[in-house]
Computed example of a mutant assay.
Amino acid sequence: MSITFIDPMVVRSLNKSKLRKKILYYLYKIYPNATYLSEISRGVKSDPSNVLGCLKGLNGRYNGHFSLIELGLVECKEYHGMKLYKLTEYGKKIVELLIDQDNNVISSLRW
């Protein structure tokens, strides 16, 4: 078992935005494939401008320092003039840790 360092800024960013977390889970679901903005937007049922804000940051509403790309969780590649977004290997590990944590919390609950 390997230990993955989780940057506290990543934790803060994901705790502050459910949409960022949804985008990560969506990209994890289609990993290792990359996809374009409108497809992500449909997949997470959110407006493309909000998704772009989470991915890259936008003036005012979405801080670029906490964007998924800036945190190293998602990468953007240009292919024939089209921007494609893909989960990084670090992003994949973070999602797997989140899933594991959620499963541990759920299994510890007494019903």
Rank of each mutant, 00 (worst) to 15 (best):
residue 71 L to P: 15
residue 56 K to D: 00
residue 49 S to D: 12
residue 63 N to D: 15
residue 98 L to F: 05
residue 91 G to K: 08
residue 25 Y to G: 01
residue 59 N to T: 11
residue 7 D to Y: 03
residue 67 S to E: 02
residue 45 K to L: 05
residue 97 L to W: 04
residue 7 D to F: 07
residue 23 I to L: 06
residue 80 H to P: 00
residue 63 N to G: 03
residue 40 I to L: 12
residue 43 G to Q: 04
residue 19 L to N: 07
residue 56 K to R: 13
residue 101 Q to G: 15
residue 79 Y to Q: 12
residue 108 S to Y: 05
residue 68 L to Q: 03
residue 108 S to K: 07
residue 53 G to W: 06
residue 60 G to T: 06
residue 5 F to P: 09
residue 27 L to V: 13
residue 39 E to D: 14
residue 95 V to D: 11
residue 68 L to D: 13
residue 94 I to Q: 05
residue 49 S to E: 13
residue 83 K to Y: 11
residue 25 Y to H: 05
residue 31 Y to L: 02
residue 14 L to H: 07
residue 78 E to M: 10
residue 26 Y to N: 02
residue 43 G to A: 06
residue 26 Y to G: 03
residue 30 I to T: 10
residue 69 I to W: 00
residue 84 L to Q: 06
residue 47 D to P: 02
residue 94 I to D: 14
residue 50 N to Q: 10
residue 6 I to T: 14
residue 99 I to Y: 08
residue 46 S to A: 15
residue 7 D to R: 06
residue 28 Y to L: 01
residue 92 K to V: 04
residue 68 L to E: 12
residue 25 Y to T: 02
residue 44 V to P: 12
residue 10 V to T: 15
residue 34 A to Y: 09
residue 4 T to A: 08
residue 53 G to F: 09
residue 9 M to R: 11
residue 82 M to H: 08
residue 111 W to L: 07
residue 108 S to F: 04
residue 16 K to T: 07
residue 15 N to I: 03
residue 63 N to T: 03
residue 50 N to I: 00
residue 44 V to D: 15
residue 83 K to T: 07
residue 68 L to F: 10
residue 17 S to V: 07
residue 33 N to A: 09
residue 14 L to T: 05
residue 28 Y to K: 02
residue 110 R to H: 13
residue 32 P to M: 03
residue 33 N to C: 05
residue 28 Y to G: 01
residue 82 M to T: 15
residue 89 E to D: 15
residue 99 I to D: 14
residue 59 N to L: 06
residue 47 D to V: 08
residue 91 G to T: 14
residue 35 T to Q: 12
residue 25 Y to W: 01
residue 74 V to Q: 11
residue 58 L to W: 01
residue 47 D to F: 11
residue 58 L to E: 09
residue 67 S to P: 12
residue 108 S to G: 14
residue 108 S to P: 08
residue 35 T to W: 08
residue 22 K to H: 02
residue 98 L to K: 00
residue 111 W to D: 11
residue 13 S to T: 10
residue 71 L to N: 14
residue 47 D to G: 10
residue 110 R to Y: 06
residue 111 W to K: 01
residue 47 D to Y: 11
residue 71 L to A: 08
residue 93 K to L: 03
residue 80 H to N: 11
residue 74 V to K: 04
residue 90 Y to W: 00
residue 18 K to N: 10
residue 90 Y to M: 01
residue 21 K to M: 10
residue 10 V to K: 06
residue 68 L to K: 01
residue 56 K to H: 00
residue 75 E to T: 13
residue 58 L to F: 00
residue 67 S to A: 09
residue 9 M to E: 15
residue 111 W to Y: 07
residue 45 K to H: 06
residue 108 S to E: 12
residue 82 M to Q: 09
residue 41 S to C: 05
residue 7 D to A: 11
residue 48 P to A: 05
residue 40 I to P: 12
residue 38 S to G: 13
residue 64 G to L: 00
residue 84 L to I: 04
residue 62 Y to R: 01
residue 84 L to S: 02
residue 4 T to L: 09
residue 78 E to W: 04
residue 99 I to T: 14
residue 95 V to M: 03
residue 16 K to I: 00
residue 102 D to I: 01
residue 50 N to K: 01
residue 27 L to P: 12
residue 21 K to H: 02
residue 93 K to G: 11
residue 56 K to A: 00
residue 51 V to R: 01
residue 91 G to V: 07
residue 42 R to E: 15
residue 13 S to W: 10
residue 49 S to C: 03
residue 51 V to S: 08
residue 107 S to A: 09
residue 3 I to S: 14
residue 45 K to E: 12
residue 109 L to W: 08
